[in-house]
């Protein structure tokens, strides 16, 4: 089941000053149901453009986006989406509760369900105390949390979150990360954009990296991490004979433990020596580039 299917999506802006700007060129992406997908890219890379095209706020110059099989140009496609805009702002003359009521009725929720769900999401987003105050008086973090609350309210299958962690303090960030994990556990699909690599590592199944309007890489977070392994740190207890290990760097520790580093290519050879020498292995630890360096490499590659 494909939750989101983007084919050949391009967006060209014609401006008087800069001429033709390719905000997005030929983006192809399929997000399957139940997946947490992180959309990573520097500022101005085209993350928001993609999301706005999915949400029908802008019209792609080419290509199209299907949401659970329904074209994004059809308002019905949004019935199954919980959307959090980037730096959201909501009708500030309403109270938080009134706003959620408006959202709930917009998604045809029955009154009873709406009332109980409202309390639930307000509680979850720690907004219960502020619920009956006008949004005008909310702090930035509170508005962001209200944004998440309104995305959660109708319990959609697909979540599209544009920079969900921005504007939040560390507590709020933890709240969002836990929320995403919880939604994933319930089998929901989450597509979120971010420019913070640690967020991706923490919660995503897959990640797409977009730079200058082009999708540079799409891969499983696991396999990026695995591919990123450059070598291993290995702690070995030897009987004293270390001549077998000639050619490998090591540092000696107090308690007769030798700390080796081997490159990925030599790992097998090293382990054979270990077996041959009949040594005891205390620790094998992969040394790898994290997503951040992977990301930086992609961004710098022209």
């Amino acid at each position: 089941m494909k939750a989101l299917e983007i084919t050949g999506l391009s967006k060209i802006y014609k401006t008087k000053k800069a001429g033709v700007v390719n905000a997005l060129s030929d983006l192809n992406l399929v997000i399957s149901s139940g997946e947490v997908f992180g959309f990573l890219g520097p500022n101005g890379a085209g993350k928001s453009t993609t999301i706005k095209a999915i949400m029908g706020l802008i019209k792609p110059s080419k290509g199209d986006a299907l949401i659970a099989g329904v074209p994004a140009s059809d308002p019905h496609s949004r019935l199954n989406i919980g959307y959090l805009p980037e730096n959201p702002s909501f009708y500030d003359f309403l109270t938080g509760r009134e706003y959620l009521y408006f959202i709930g009725t917009s998604f045809h929720m029955a009154d009873n369900l709406l009332k109980s769900r409202t309390n639930e999401v307000l509680d979850k987003m720690e907004l219960s105390l502020a619920a009956d105050r006008p949004i005008r008086g909310y702090s930035k973090g509170m508005v962001q949390r209200l944004g998440l609350a309104q995305a959660l309210l109708h319990d959609p299958e697909i979540y599209i979150l544009d920079e969900p962690m921005s504007g939040l303090d560390p507590l709020g960030r933890a709240l969002v990360k836990n929320l995403i994990k919880e939604l994933k556990a319930h089998g929901k699909t989450i597509f979120f954009s971010t420019h913070i690599t640690a967020d991706v590592e923490a919660v995503c199944d897959r990640v797409g990296i977009i730079v200058n309007g082009e999708l540079r890489a799409v891969d499983k977070v696991e396999s990026i991490l695995e591919k990123g392994i450059t070598g291993y740190n290995i702690h070995v207890r030897t009987g004293g004979d270390i001549s077998l290990f000639s050619g490998f760097d090591f540092t000696e520790r107090d308690s007769g433990i030798l700390e080796f580093y081997t490159s990925r290519a030599l790992f097998k050879q090293f382990m054979e020596i270990v077996v041959h020498a009949n040594c005891e292995v205390d620790l094998v630890e992969p040394v790898r580039k994290n997503i951040e360096s992977f990301f930086l490499e992609l961004v710098e590659k022209r």
């Binding site: 308002p75 989406i81 998604f107």
Partner: peptide, 9 residues
């Protein structure tokens, strides 16, 4: 407000 309202169904 448009980004919040126009993205409703």
């Amino acid at each position: 407000y448009t980004s919040a309202v126009l993205t409703l169904p």
